[in-house]
Simulated scan of single mutants.
Amino acid sequence: MPAQGLTIQRLALHNFRNHASTVLEMDSRPVCLFGANGAGKTNLLEAVSMLGPGKGLRAASLPSLVRVDGGETVQGGWAISARMDDDGLDRQISVGLEVSAEGRTRRIAKLDDAPVSQTNLAELIRVVWLTPAMDRVFAGPAGDRRKFYDRQVLAHIPSHGSVSAAYEKAMRERNALFEQGRPDPSWLDALEARLAEAGAAIAVNRAQALQRIQNAIDARPEGEFPKADLSIAGEFEAMALQGDSQEGIELRIRDSLKDGRGRDSAAGRTLSGVHRSDLQVSHRPKQLPAAQCSTGEQKALLMGMILANAKALLEGDFAPNPLLLLDEAAAHLDSARRAALYDELAALGGQAWLTGTDAALFDAFGDRAQRFCVENGLVTKVENSG
């Protein structure tokens, strides 16, 4: 049996989405949630994703997560708590939205009853997910692929979130100077220094994660989920992949920004940088860009990438076992691929969470998984019928 590492043993939700007060008790096996559309299955996956950094798998605003009852948002915030087994060590994690008497809101997080930052939580909890919204990521705009890929990078390098936020903030401020007209060169120098520092870190992070994920893809056996070849279309990521130092990449970004001031000023925005890079994926057996593959082939490629990333996290010395969230993934697979997915998840280690409308979708798991029926925000554990 694979080592289980970090697993959720108890999950409790209070006034989160359509869950007024929900508690799940479970073991380390994959967790299968079934029920009708709108029952609250994805809300449970979203709650698990909120234990890690960021805004979770829907990227929703924190106040919008508060339960609505009878058309009215309930008073107070929401709360999620999880008791976790970290290779035999009990950990208690809680996150929530706190609402002050004046109506101000803030996110709070605790680890073993002590306040903790999101960055520190990210060191403990790595979450990887796949949702139906990602199904066409290969054929969609570059921004969607960057967002998808940066989430994979974040699972490997928790600091990626903070440097990405710093980059976006510096870029907004630089763009604002251009919109005001005739910006002070010394202000631009300062902002471009911050932008280059964060941009270089982003490029290096993306390159490191790409190598790890590609290695995990290459090591996968041939099977139902075809192997992908990954690359990044971006000058600065290319420098990182070629072995250039982060300091050298930072200097190149600063020079590029300074040289492009006239063009960027005319456009009112920053036209080059890591915010314009693009993840490129090809179907290795067919030697075909993913965007040109059929819908089913794209979904199979995407599933293979997510499984490879989970494996890369499992085998690295930089992370505990990830939590793998697969929303409605089983429904989009034929029976052969569904059985192959369950075999792989059962052998993978870590803890996987899956949703589906029908309990029969999970029959191929047998007794290797645990099942919960979700109905109108209520959850019932169901014994395996064999």
Rank of each mutant, 00 (worst) to 15 (best):
M1G: 14
R10P: 03
R10H: 08
A12G: 11
A20D: 08
L24P: 02
S28N: 12
V31Q: 00
G38V: 10
A39F: 00
N43E: 03
L45A: 06
L51E: 01
K55W: 06
L65V: 09
V66F: 12
D69Q: 14
T73C: 07
V74Q: 15
G76D: 03
S81Y: 01
S81T: 04
D85Y: 04
D87Q: 13
D90Y: 05
S100E: 13
S100V: 15
K110T: 10
P115T: 12
W129L: 03
R136N: 12
D144L: 08
Y149E: 08
P158G: 04
P158L: 10
H160T: 00
A166K: 02
K169S: 13
M171V: 06
M171Q: 13
E179Q: 02
E179M: 10
P183F: 09
L191G: 10
L195I: 09
L210H: 08
A219Y: 05
A228V: 07
A233H: 15
E235S: 10
D244V: 09
I253V: 12
D255P: 02
Q280W: 01
V281T: 04
V281E: 04
V281Y: 00
P285C: 06
P285A: 06
S294V: 12
K299V: 08
M305A: 05
L307M: 11
A312F: 02
D317M: 06
P322S: 11
A330D: 13
A336N: 10
R338Y: 08
A339T: 01
A339K: 09
L341N: 00
L348Y: 05
A352R: 01
A352T: 04
T355I: 00
A360T: 14
A360R: 15
R368W: 05
C373Q: 12
E383T: 03
S385Y: 09
